[in-house]
Design a protein around this nucleic acid. Structure first.
Lengths: 197, 197
DNA sequence: TTGCACATGTAAAATGTTACATGATTAT
DNA sequence: ATAATCATGTAACATTTTACATGTGCAA
């Protein structure tokens, strides 16, 4: 269900083609929801059927393409979801699972796993912090479009709230990195559980 | 793939029936991987075929049941996975997605969503902290069985590492709760974005 | 005797990933 | 010309959730 609202939420800022949407959601942008284009194209079709978006054929030369725009019904659906309280999704964490068995393997392997994870989480935290800063400066690809339809008096509040979301993501990623680093410290202090040689 | 290793990892501590396993993984225990019994029974069948576990028929009266035990091949598979570095899984976070659109709805709704989330994360953090404490005291359902097959000199190191895993989970959940609380503060400071009346 | 815990499965649907497939446009 | 980017889809597979389905053992 969340993918649907990720799409509606992006289209609320501005109309896009399926291709633009799939780039936005392809994971490399560090945005909040990642999905493949193979999920997005069929979903857009279903959403058109449901009247949540309209697709306007907008060919450039021979290159066919469709630009999707949020309808009032789509916006209503989005607002209902955003205001609602939803049951928590699964929070299965593959790293935690691996970490709890790390005492079974040589200390050098365990340390490698932990360092790699910590490194990735630090990188994720940096990305999120950058995003928060860009948002606060009004430099993200969508924030200007979003603000255009809102009263100027609200602009500061809106950017502040959105920036807090990404700052929070950064804080969580940092907590995760510190977690792995705490395990590295524990590993070093107690000495190698298994001889490496 | 992770479910497979969650099962192997539990069976490494002690043999269990499918029912016991599915209770262990049913989410209410606050363990690291949750799954339904409808996933576990077929998986156990496949794992028997692959020689990772053996199932011993162990009927109690007329009540049929099968107890599964890790094989050497199963343990080897587990150790290989634990020592390896794996690509990060999806970290799509439905709360973050909802949070970034919270400026679109009345402040009272937004505040409710944030309070509910913060409350849940505090509860999750408490559970993880409790688990860490129980682990350190050797009181979790599996830690004693696990330690039985390990030299006494390693016991402290093993429990310390495992406790750190759950302490880390608690820290991450706390970071998430603080995230939501930071958004509540931002919401209050900038005033209601929408009039509630 | 009724309900709960034990015990094991299958089926259908939703969701997500990887691979396959095609063609147009633009920059080098 | 040729490679990268734009643009849109389908197919196969894996994973997860929800529902359906059955039967035993035990305690109130």
């Amino acid at each position: 269900m969340s993918l649907k609202y990720a799409v509606l939420g992006v289209l609320d800022a501005r109309s896009m083609t399926g291709y633009e949407l799939s780039q936005f959601l392809d994971g490399s942008t560090g945005w909040l929801w990642a999905a493949n284009h193979s999920q997005i194209y069929p979903l857009l079709g279903r959403m058109v059927e449901q009247g949540l978006v309209v697709g306007v054929d907008d060919a450039r030369g021979e290159q066919r393409r469709t630009t999707y725009t949020l309808t009032d019904a789509g916006r209503e659906d989005l607002l209902g979801w955003v205001a609602g309280i939803h049951p928590p999704g699964r929070d299965n964490d593959a790293f935690a699972l691996q970490a709890v068995f790390l005492d079974m393997v040589p200390g050098s392997s365990a340390a490698q796993v932990l360092r790699e994870y910590a490194h990735r989480q630090r990188a994720a935290a940096d990305l999120a912090r950058q995003h928060a800063d860009q948002l606060a400066a009004g430099e993200t690809p969508l924030i200007r479009e979003r603000l255009q339809v809102r009263p100027t008096t609200e602009h500061e509040a809106i950017t502040r709230l959105k920036a807090t979301v990404f700052a929070g993501q950064a804080a969580v990623a940092t907590a995760r990195a510190e977690w792995a680093e705490a395990m590295l410290v524990a590993l070093a202090e107690v000495g190698r559980l298994h001889m490496d040689a």
